[in-house]
Design a protein around this nucleic acid. Structure first.
Length: 151
DNA sequence: GCCAACGTTGGC
DNA sequence: GCCAACGTTGGC
């Protein structure tokens, strides 16, 4: 079992939406590295830190788990969807998405709190210029965050 | 709104 | 294959 961090803008789809829906497809990833993590490495049951980005209070807002393995992302074929990709053909889909299931909401762990923890200094999300929306989280990072930073 | 950093595109 | 130009991300 592996651990992950997935970013979403709460104005678009935040932890409250997932709590309401219980389970949701992770639509809209259009980055090859992030896609490959979903397609090649994510397994049902993997646990995920749900991160809020591009918002007044960026940080870890909750925990979810992978509920369904990667499958073609239907939004890539929908001309009316903002994630439409004319390069992708139904017979050879370019983009996939997993489904995630709500586990719990956390008191927000602010980005600043992550930065303050020496244990997390190597964490991908904290590296300069990192923009990847899906990143692996090490066992040690997960352990520290879920035992030391939750309140 | 600014801007640093990164990914993608496309001409050569 | 190189690399400049462009678009996007995301914290501040």
């Amino acid at each position: 079992m592996r651990y992950w961090l997935m970013k979403s803008e709460p104005g678009e789809y935040g932890i409250d939406h997932l709590q309401r829906d219980r389970q949701s497809a992770w639509f809209g990833v259009r980055n090859y590295q992030a896609r490959n993590f979903m397609r090649d490495d994510m397994k049902v049951g993997d646990l995920v830190l749900f991160y809020h980005s591009s918002c007044p209070e960026p940080g870890i807002a909750g925990i979810c788990k992978i509920a369904k393995a990667a499958a073609p992302d239907v939004t890539q074929f929908d001309k009316n969807d903002s994630h439409y990709d004319p390069k992708s053909k139904p017979e050879n889909p370019l983009w996939v998405c997993v489904e995630v299931k709500f586990v719990k909401k956390l008191h927000l762990i602010p980005l600043a709190a992550l930065r303050d923890a020496p244990t997390l200094s190597e964490m991908r999300i904290l590296q300069r210029g990192n923009r990847l929306s899906i990143t692996p989280v090490s066992d040690a990072e997960w352990e520290f965050i879920t035992t030391q930073l939750v309140t």
